[in-house]
Amino acid sequence: MNPIAIILLVLLILSGIGLIIFILLHSGKGTGISDAIASSVYSTQTGTSIVEKNLDRITIALVIVFMVSLVLLMIFYPQGSITAGQ
C-alpha cells in the first residue's frame, strides 16, 4: 500500500474515533458527561463554559482533519483503488 494512503487512512480512523469520543462528551441539556466532569473540577458556572468551549474547539479540529483526509482519499483514489499491489 502507498505510504500516503496509509497516512490518510490512519488520520481518518483516528479522527473518526476521536469524533465519536468528543461528541459523546458534549452535554445535551446539562446532563452530559462533560457537566459531571466540569462540576467536579469547577464549582462555578464559568468552569462549565470553559470546558464546553474546549470541547467545541477539539471537536471542530477533529472534524476538519476527518473531512480533509476523506476528501484527499477521494481525490487520490477515486474508484477505491487502494490495493496491496501498488
Score class of each variant (00 low, 15 high):
1 M>N: 12
2 N>Q: 08
3 P>I: 08
3 P>Q: 03
3 P>D: 00
4 I>F: 15
4 I>W: 14
5 A>W: 06
7 I>V: 12
8 L>I: 01
8 L>A: 10
9 L>K: 10
10 V>F: 14
11 L>E: 03
11 L>V: 06
11 L>C: 09
11 L>W: 01
12 L>I: 03
12 L>C: 05
13 I>A: 13
13 I>S: 08
13 I>C: 04
16 G>S: 15
16 G>N: 05
16 G>K: 05
17 I>M: 15
17 I>K: 09
19 L>K: 02
20 I>L: 12
20 I>W: 06
20 I>D: 03
20 I>K: 00
21 I>K: 12
22 F>H: 07
23 I>N: 10
23 I>L: 11
24 L>T: 11
25 L>Y: 06
25 L>H: 04
25 L>M: 14
25 L>F: 15
26 H>P: 04
26 H>A: 02
27 S>A: 07
27 S>V: 05
28 G>Y: 06
29 K>M: 11
30 G>T: 12
30 G>L: 13
31 T>K: 14
33 I>Q: 02
33 I>A: 08
34 S>K: 04
35 D>A: 12
35 D>G: 04
36 A>I: 01
36 A>M: 07
37 I>Y: 15
37 I>W: 13
37 I>S: 10
37 I>R: 06
39 S>R: 13
39 S>W: 08
39 S>F: 08
39 S>V: 01
41 V>W: 05
41 V>L: 09
41 V>D: 08
41 V>P: 01
42 Y>G: 06
42 Y>K: 04
44 T>W: 00
45 Q>E: 14
45 Q>Y: 11
45 Q>M: 08
46 T>S: 12
46 T>H: 13
46 T>C: 03
49 S>D: 13
49 S>C: 00
49 S>F: 15
49 S>R: 12
49 S>N: 09
49 S>P: 00
50 I>D: 07
51 V>P: 02
51 V>C: 09
51 V>W: 10
52 E>K: 12
52 E>P: 01
53 K>N: 10
53 K>F: 13
54 N>F: 09
55 L>T: 06
56 D>A: 14
56 D>W: 06
57 R>A: 14
57 R>M: 13
58 I>M: 10
58 I>E: 05
58 I>C: 02
59 T>E: 08
59 T>K: 01
60 I>T: 14
60 I>P: 05
61 A>I: 07
62 L>I: 12
63 V>W: 07
64 I>F: 07
64 I>T: 14
66 F>W: 07
66 F>C: 04
67 M>L: 10
67 M>H: 06
68 V>S: 05
68 V>G: 04
68 V>R: 00
68 V>I: 15
69 S>G: 03
71 V>G: 04
72 L>D: 06
72 L>N: 05
73 L>F: 04
73 L>E: 02
73 L>I: 10
74 M>H: 12
74 M>T: 09
75 I>A: 11
75 I>H: 03
75 I>F: 12
76 F>W: 03
76 F>S: 02
76 F>T: 00
77 Y>L: 02
77 Y>G: 06
78 P>L: 00
79 Q>N: 07
79 Q>E: 11
80 G>W: 02
81 S>D: 15
81 S>M: 03
81 S>R: 06
83 T>F: 09
83 T>S: 08
83 T>I: 01
84 A>G: 09
84 A>V: 12
85 G>C: 07
85 G>N: 14
85 G>A: 15
86 Q>L: 11
86 Q>A: 10
86 Q>V: 00
